[in-house]
C-alpha cells in the first residue's frame, strides 16, 4: 500500500475490535443469547451486511483465509464487494473454496460441504429477534427470553398450519439452542437448519442495524421448533441440480428466457463447480424445459 493514509488492520480500530470480541465471547458463553454491542458505522449501508462485516473484522487475523457468499454464491455483488473490502483493509488471502476457508461470511446460506473444526461461519443478520413479529415490544421480548416464555413462537407455527395446512415458514425458521434460547437463524432456508446442529465450526451472528451479536459454539444442540403431529421437515427438490446432478442440495431457480423456461441449479456455487470438475452432471442443462416441467417446491 502506498497511499498516505492507511486503514488500521481490518478497518476497525483496536478498541472497537476489543469491544466486539467481548460481545462475541459473551455470546459464545451463552449460546443463542443476543448480546448488545456498540455497532459502528461501516462504509456500506445497513442491510448490506454491516453486522457480519464487523464480526468478521473483529475475528480475522493476517493468516486467515476468507470466503464470502451471498445466497450461496461467491460471485454476487454483495459477496464480491465484501471480499474486496477485506482484501483492501486487511490484505488477507481470499478463496471461494469452502474447504480452504478459515472464515466464511455468509448471507442466507450455509455451505453444502460440511464445515470442519477450526472454521468460523459469520452470518449477516437483518432482524435478530425471532419474537419480533408477534410481540413488537423489545422490553417484553427480552423478558420472554429471560423467563424462557416461548409459547408465542409456537403460536406463529400454529398460525402457519391453520392457514396453510403445514408449517409454511421456509426461512428464518426458529430454533432452540442448547435447550435454552430460541434464536432466529437469520434468513437462511430451513433446509440449512440441520447443518447448525452439532456443527464442528463456530457460528457467529452479527446484526449491525439492530446492534446484536449471538453465537452457536461448536458441537451445540440446535433444534428446530415444531409440533408432534407436524414435525420439522426440510425442503426437498424433485429434480437434481441441472448443472452438477447433485441430489439433496439446495437449488435456485434460474430463468433462461422470456418464455418461462428455467432450470434448477445448486445455490452453493463452489459445491456445484467442484462436482462439475469431478465430471458430474450436465445431463439436464441441455434440456431446461424438462426441468421447468417439474417445478421444485418454492424455497422462499
Amino acid at each position: 500500500m502506498t497511499e498516505l493514509a492507511t486503514y488500521n488492520f481490518a478497518y476497525l480500530d483496536e478498541q472497537t475490535k476489543r469491544m466486539i470480541r467481548r460481545a462475541i465471547l459473551k455470546a459464545i458463553a451463552i449460546p443463542g443469547y443476543q448480546v448488545p454491542f456498540a455497532s459502528r458505522e461501516m462504509p456500506m449501508p445497513y442491510g448490506w451486511g454491516t453486522g457480519g462485516v464487523q464480526v468478521t473484522a473483529a475475528v480475522i487475523g493476517p493468516n486467515d483465509m476468507l470466503k464470502v457468499i451471498d445466497q450461496g454464491a461467491d460471485d454476487t455483488t454483495n459477496a464480491v464487494s465484501i471480499r474486496a473490502f477485506f482484501q483492501k483493509v486487511s490484505n488477507v488471502r481470499v478463496t471461494t473454496k469452502t474447504t480452504e476457508a478459515t472464515i466464511i461470511q455468509t448471507r442466507h446460506r450455509i455451505p453444502e460441504t460440511a464445515l470442519q473444526a477450526g472454521q468460523t461461519l459469520v452470518y449477516q443478520v437483518p432482524i435478530p429477534e425471532p419474537l419480533r413479529f408477534l410481540e413488537p415490544r423489545e422490553t417484553e421480548t427480552r423478558k420472554m427470553h429471560a423467563l424462557e416464555e416461548y409459547g408465542l413462537m409456537h403460536v406463529k407455527l400454529y398460525e402457519d398450519i391453520a392457514r396453510h395446512g403445514r408449517i409454511a415458514t421456509t426461512y428464518a425458521y426458529p430454533v432452540k439452542v442448547e435447550g435454552r434460547y430460541v434464536m432466529d437463524p437469520s434468513p437462511t432456508p430451513k433446509f440449512d437448519n440441520p447443518k447448525m446442529h452439532q456443527s464442528p465450526a463456530l457460528q457467529l451472528f452479527g446484526a449491525g442495524r439492530e446492534k446484536r451479536i449471538y453465537a452457536i459454539p461448536p458441537y451445540t444442540e440446535v433444534v428446530s421448533l415444531d409440533f408432534e403431529d407436524h414435525p420439522f421437515e426440510i425442503q426437498t427438490f424433485s429434480e437434481p441440480c441441472a448443472l452438477c446432478g447433485a441430489k439433496g442440495s439446495y437449488l435456485d431457480e434460474v430463468i433462461l428466457d422470456d418464455k418461462g423456461g428455467s432450470m434448477f441449479v445448486c445455490s452453493d456455487t463452489d459445491f456445484c463447480e467442484d462436482r462439475q470438475a469431478e465430471g458430474n452432471g450436465d445431463h439436464l442443462s441441455a434440456n431446461p424445459a424438462q426441468a421447468a416441467a417439474n417445478p421444485a417446491e418454492a424455497a422462499e
Partner: peptide, 16 residues
Amino acid sequence: GANVGERLMAVGDRHY
C-alpha cells in the same frame, strides 16, 4: 384458535 391455544403452547403443549 391461536389466541385460545397460546396458553396451552406456553405450558408445553406440542400437539397441533
